[in-house]
């Protein structure tokens, strides 16, 4: 295998891993939007918070696997509290109120994190088994990135099971494609909202934990991931999980290969892609709903 091919493959793996993590965040965002009509601007804050929880749990217990399990759940619980005690209260005031409330929540989480953990970058060490490279078919792959891809696939599997095999999932899917359906189905709407919000933040949490060892843990995490996830959701059209997946992978690869070939312009590439899509179709890549 010549070095050029090896490099391409390595970049591809990087891109794929980032795309998968991005999808975990974006799918929660799009699910919450599709269901509740709220663009949750604090979504990435829960992602970041989970990374900090993971760091904290790892520091206390020393067990990465335990931290991996606990941190997203803790983030999701906090998300549920925010939904139950803040968002639900302002629902009557309309979407603008909800949007602005999520700005407030994101500010508080961001600043709160700085108060508790400071503004430094905190390194997160993974167990030895996930370190290093593995050689498959004459090519070296970084184990941790493969693990991230695998983890994302597992979460994806759980999501698919929830959405397609349970009654609750059916309700959620119906509601995402047609918001008026929820009432017609005669379900406990607030409970379903809370559930969706919890699952969405949980997925963001898993993504936060997964990315923490790669990028380290710092307050700027939310900014970076939040914007990328947001672009994915807007470009893919709000409320569609399948398109969010497609766009996430495209973006992961785009940013990974972009750094390789046009390093200064790489961060702009996604915006340009989005801008083109939006100018042609203001409702997103395939979407028609406003």
């Amino acid at each position: 295998m010549d070095p050029t091919t090896a490099m391409y493959v390595a970049q591809g793996i990087h891109g794929l891993a980032y795309g998968m993590v991005l999808f975990l965040v974006a799918s929660g965002l799009t699910l919450i939007f599709g269901m509740m009509g709220i663009l949750n601007l604090a979504h990435a804050s829960f992602f970041m918070l989970a990374a900090y929880f993971c760091y904290q749990a790892l520091t206390i217990t020393g067990n990465f696997w335990l931290a991996l399990l606990l941190a997203p759940v803790a983030a999701a619980l906090l998300g549920i509290l925010v939904e139950r005690f803040l968002l639900r209260k302002v629902h009557a005031f309309g979407h603008i109120g909800e949007l602005i409330l999520t700005i407030g929540v994101s500010l508080v989480i961001l600043e709160g994190v700085k108060v508790f953990w400071g503004t430094e970058s905190l390194p997160l060490r993974v167990p030895p088994i996930l370190q290093g490279l593995v050689s498959i078919g004459g090519l070296d792959y970084p184990i941790y990135r493969l693990f991230v891809i695998g983890l994302a696939l597992v979460v994806l599997g759980i999501m698919a099971l929830l959405l397609y095999k349970t009654r609750l999932g059916m309700v959620v899917r119906a509601a995402v494609s047609d918001a008026n359906m929820v009432n017609a189905l005669g379900v406990n709407v607030p409970l379903v909202f809370m559930f969706v919000f919890g699952v969405g933040t949980w997925m963001a949490g898993v993504a936060g934990v997964a990315i923490a060892p790669i990028l380290t843990v710092f307050p700027g995490l939310a900014d970076q991931m939040g914007m990328d996830a947001f672009i994915v959701v807007v470009t893919g059209g709000l409320g569609s999980i399948a398109r969010a997946f497609l766009v996430s992978i495209i973006f992961g690869l785009l940013s990974s290969y972009g750094v390789q070939f046009v390093s200064t312009l790489a961060p702009v590439l996604m915006f340009i892609f989005m801008a083109i899509v939006l100018v042609i179709k203001p409702m997103g890549l395939f979407g028609e709903r406003e």
Binding site: L86, G104, S106, K114, V115
Partner: peptide, 19 residues
């Protein structure tokens, strides 16, 4: 230094209680 923390809290309180 955490001015934004206070701002965020105020924003939440305003939206909740004095829309």
């Amino acid at each position: 230094e955490r001015v934004e923390l206070v701002m965020g809290l105020i924003l939440i309180l305003v939206i909740m209680f004095a829309p």
